[in-house]
């Protein structure tokens, strides 16, 4: 009976396991076995390679070669989105969610200003200066649940990120490190083991100067008064009240900023830090002092 058969088939299908990656099989003959051209009796004198020429001598032309014609893969050579790729800067993405997590887990100390060194010292973020990475880009992911009050210094930040930090009473600054300084900042212990003076941070290049001198981006080269104005403006835009400092200590912590030429907080460029003797060596010669000061 036809109806009985269909019912049986339906039942069978219902009882069978669902189709998944674990029970999929290749189609028959879909995998082709490569021809083995061994030096054995069955493969004759030429071993399946034929007489003379490119086949025998394994000097076949390169892939895509069309016999002196311009190959197809070179006929359409324009890839404008890769233009100047060798000059572009890369920033490691770090989200507010990640920062919040670091704070909650005690990986970041909120009672001290946070900069790239402290972010890298968590060992959870790696900035590779040799791969043209110039620091971190603070993303606005997790802006809704962000609730830490901190003084943070990053390389790039979006408007929403800035708003999320300032809403909680925090302070954010964007700042540029040249690759040489970044090398020191990313791993201070490794840098001090070299026994060289702390470098003087260079100013941002011409194409970055507009970003870092803009109060809207909280750039470190922007006018502080303009930054205060921008803070108020942003608070109005996103509809939150600006925070008032609870005590002097907190205020002091939140308002500490590095000098544009300084890369470690509390350490000036030109100083040599010796971790063995626990001493700091400072140059006295006016020529040296002037060079590292400027």
């Amino acid at each position: 009976m036809a109806s009985g058969i269909t019912e049986k088939a339906l039942k069978l299908v219902q009882s069978l396991p669902r189709l998944s990656l674990s029970n999929i099989k290749n189609l028959p003959h879909s995998i082709k076995k490569t021809k083995r051209r061994r030096r054995d009796r069955q493969h004759g004198k030429t071993h399946g390679r034929g007489h003379k020429g490119q086949g025998q001598r394994a000097t076949l032309p390169r892939l895509g070669f069309e016999g002196n014609n311009t190959p197809f893969y070179l006929q359409i050579p324009k890839e404008p989105y890769y233009k100047d790729h060798e000059l572009r800067k890369e920033y490691v993405p770090v989200s507010l969610l990640q920062i919040q997590r670091f704070v909650d887990l005690g990986r970041l100390n909120v009672k001290e200003p946070i900069d790239l060194s402290s972010l890298c010292n968590t060992r959870l973020i790696q900035v590779k200066w040799e791969q043209k990475q110039f620091g971190v880009d603070l993303l606005d992911e997790g802006a809704d649940i962000f609730c830490a009050r901190l003084n943070i210094e990053v390389q790039k930040a979006s408007e929403l990120t800035i708003a999320a930090i300032e809403k909680n009473g925090g302070v954010i600054t964007t700042r540029y490190y040249d690759p040489h300084s970044l090398h020191a900042v990313v791993n201070p212990a490794k840098f001090f083991a070299k026994g060289v003076p702390i470098p003087r941070c260079k100013l941002p290049p011409q194409n970055e100067i507009a970003y870092y001198s803009d109060a809207k981006n909280r750039g470190y080269l922007a006018d502080p008064e303009k930054i205060l104005h921008a803070r108020v403006e942003l608070a109005q835009k996103y509809g939150y009240a600006l925070f008032e400092y609870e005590n002097e200590e907190e205020k002091e912590m939140l308002l500490t900023r590095k000098d544009p030429r300084q890369i470690f907080l509390g350490l000036a460029p030109g100083w040599v830090v010796n971790l063995k003797d626990k001493v700091i060596l400072k140059p006295k010669d006016p020529e040296f002092v002037n060079y590292y000061k400027s």
């Binding site: 003076p197 030109g270 040599v272 010796n274 971790l275 063995k276 060596l281 140059p283």
Partner: peptide, 20 residues
């Protein structure tokens, strides 16, 4: 020499002026 100074401090006997 700089590295030795950084690692062993004054014990290394390296003149600290060569750091600069």
């Amino acid at each position: 020499k700089r590295k030795m100074y950084a690692k062993f401090g004054q014990e290394s006997g390296v003149d600290a002026r060569i750091m600069w």
